[in-house]
Amino acid sequence: MNDVLYNRIYNILSGRQSRSVEANELYAVGSIIGSVRNRNEDVGALVKIRHGRASSNDFTVALVCDGMGGMSDGRVAALIAASSFLSAILRVDRSSGVKRAINFALNAAQRAVYDELRGNGGTTLSAVYLDASSEAWFVHVGDSRIYEIRAGIELRQISRDDTIGAALQRHHQENRPDNNRLIQFVGLDGELDPQLLPIEKASVNGFLLTSDGAHSPSSEILATIVKHSKSGPELVRKLLNVADALGGLDNATAVHIPVATEIKNRDQFERSAHDDLVASILCSSGQHDIWFAQPPFRDAVSRSPSSEIHRERNVKPFVDLPEKNKSPKKPKQSKANKKDQRSDELPLGVDKPIAKLDFSDGGDGTP
């Protein structure tokens, strides 16, 4: 797909994994292949959006996509879904409401996966959205899970499993072979019926997102791990260690996001007096920062660029997200493209280079 933002995020998420757990002071993302699978078809990511002079507009998104191993392109499906969801949530004008923005991003991921793979690949998608308001939002499709960690270190699952066993409430028949069969996933031929709900943040310390390999231990074991973990990175590391110790029968991915997402006097992004925006992405390939010369907003309701915003900031419209007759191809980097990518990276005194994306060219790299 000829979309600079989508391609950049796809390349970041598909980069080589450097360690099992990536973490900073606030967040943690961990993933392991396990002992049985030949490759990791999970994608986990945390994205922190920081606005230059309007910190009240900052938001954070945590996401887990578990590509379906029984399909030929599970890994590709997970990467397309995660990249489409995140690039869409970055482009949405959230003034029309967070719920509509998240639903727009999910539909973008659904269209992108199906248009590319035509049913030969599918993935779960579970995401949590946090901003300065009193509510968090979550969206969920599949059998990955979202837990809330409440005050008092209590673990509670808030997502439902989109499986036959869960739908029929077969809690006493756990060994039935069709219990874990998905009844919906991102990339199917049809409409999704996602969970898309708000959660009051007042009594919640944080959220934990897991693929089924990470929450395979019993609920009692998971609760014990949470209770005896002093930080998000420690919690994620212990979850993966236990999953591996129990045989590593599946890929395991866990993402932890605290509700208190700011540390006073430790803001790593120096606020500017302009409308610059930085997206910090934490995933298996490390932490990556993308700087936008102009905020890449678009109207979530009409699915066309917001003319008012573009007129005020003198920004040309962006390339549309894929319609049903447009397939988002897996980005291919030629040697020339790799040279161009290096020239985009600006040494601005941070640990990792910041990739400058100026969307005033319409988003497709052409004038």
Rank of each mutant, 00 (worst) to 15 (best):
I257G: 05
Q287A: 11
K326Y: 04
D320N: 12
L321K: 01
P295E: 02
S304R: 04
I257F: 03
A273S: 12
D276Y: 07
E312Y: 02
E323K: 05
D244I: 01
D340G: 03
V315I: 09
K329H: 08
K324E: 05
L346Y: 10
L348G: 11
V278I: 15
Q287H: 03
R298H: 06
E270H: 05
A260L: 13
R266Y: 11
L346S: 12
F292G: 02
L249A: 05
S302R: 10
H288C: 09
R237W: 02
F269P: 01
Q341T: 03
D340T: 07
D267Y: 03
E345A: 14
N251R: 09
R237V: 00
L235T: 10
P317F: 08
R313K: 14
H256E: 01
P317Q: 03
D275N: 08
E308H: 02
T253Q: 09
T253G: 06
V278N: 03
F297H: 13
S334H: 12
V259C: 08
N325L: 01
V319R: 07
P305I: 03
R342S: 04
S284P: 00
V255Y: 14
L346P: 00
P258G: 09
A273P: 01
D267T: 12
D344Y: 15
S334L: 11
A293D: 11
H274V: 03
L249Y: 07
D289P: 01
L235D: 10
K238A: 14
P331W: 06
R271A: 13
A279P: 06
E262L: 05
S285C: 12
P305Y: 04
F269L: 09
S284D: 08
N241A: 14
E345L: 15
R237T: 13
I309N: 06
R313F: 11
L346A: 12
K332F: 15
S306C: 13
A293Y: 04
F297Y: 15
E270T: 09
K329E: 13
I290S: 01
V315S: 03
S285N: 13
L321Y: 03
Q294V: 13
I257V: 15
K316V: 04
L346T: 14
H288I: 07
N337L: 14
V236M: 09
S285Y: 09
A293Q: 03
A279E: 12
E262H: 08
N325R: 01
I309A: 06
R303G: 00
G286I: 05
K238G: 04
A300V: 11
R311E: 12
A245G: 10
S334C: 11
A252C: 09
E312V: 00
K326L: 06
R237A: 10
I257D: 00
P322H: 02
K335D: 05
R303S: 08
K338W: 10
Q287E: 08
K339A: 15
R298G: 07
K339T: 14
L235C: 12
P317M: 04
D276P: 01
L239A: 11
S285G: 14
A260K: 15
Q333G: 02
S327Y: 03
K264M: 13
Q287F: 01
V315T: 08
T261S: 10
L249Q: 09
C283N: 02
K329A: 14
D344K: 15
G247F: 05
I290P: 00
A336W: 07
Q294F: 10
